[in-house]
Design a protein around this nucleic acid. Structure first.
Lengths: 111, 111
DNA sequence: ACTATATATCGCAATATTACGATTAATAAT
DNA sequence: ATTATTAATCGTAATATTGCGATATATAGT
């Protein structure tokens, strides 16, 4: 994140921005999209799906897990990942709030 | 974004991940939060609110604008920013889809 | 015990992000 | 015309992210 002054923000802002950040990478969004279609995945499924090395996919899965977007369950030699609902409500609330707060007569022209 | 292989993803995934990425920084999320409370802002308002230099705030505002999250309208020597609804529906759809697709009996244990 | 399978982690290089001071640009006020 | 005021942009340093190969760990099958 560059040299971000993280001590300048509230914990709730920091934690919510982490969730958005986790979805803010095309590989991770693709993983979420895969889970929406298939329900679950193991690391190897995504390795077959995206042109990234296994190590890279594993790192992205960890980041999604750290952000509370997916859960992982050990199953034999593999790990079964699926979507989690942690933080989703918070994100929905924020985005809905933005939607509701947009007035019709402000900033019609852009700069 | 490091050495991301952007040519490996569809345009829709790339564009949506850009929107999430824009909200994935505490300063930019704070700006959105300010706009939710006040409706509009000029750059100087945020300079008073966050412990960042004017140049840094201006850059964050540009990134929010590039992502289609805010609009800016020139008003005298200042620029009036407000929330936009571009992309919000897409984000809502995605997050709602995640919410709906979460099964109750998968990945109860985490790894 | 040995081998195969699956995932996570380490170390590194390339690139992106963040933040700042200094400068520029553009309008407003005197 | 000159001077404020406001915001955007440039150049740069510090730090974070991304991706890879190599390696480690851990379970399953023979």
């Amino acid at each position: 994140m560059g040299v971000t002054k993280i001590d300048a923000y509230s914990l709730s802002v920091l934690s919510l921005s982490e969730v958005f950040k986790a979805l803010g990478h095309p590989a991770r969004l693709s993983i979420v999209s895969y889970l929406l279609q298939k329900g679950t995945c193991i690391c190897g499924d995504i390795v077959d799906e995206l042109p990234l090395a296994q190590a890279s996919i594993s790192r992205h899965l960890q980041e999604l897990k750290n952000a509370g977007i997916i859960n992982g369950q050990i199953s034999g030699t593999s790990v079964c990942y699926c979507l989690s609902d942690e933080h989703l409500e918070t994100m929905l609330t924020l985005i809905n709030s933005i939607k509701l707060s947009i007035p019709k007569t402000c900033c019609d022209e852009t700069v």
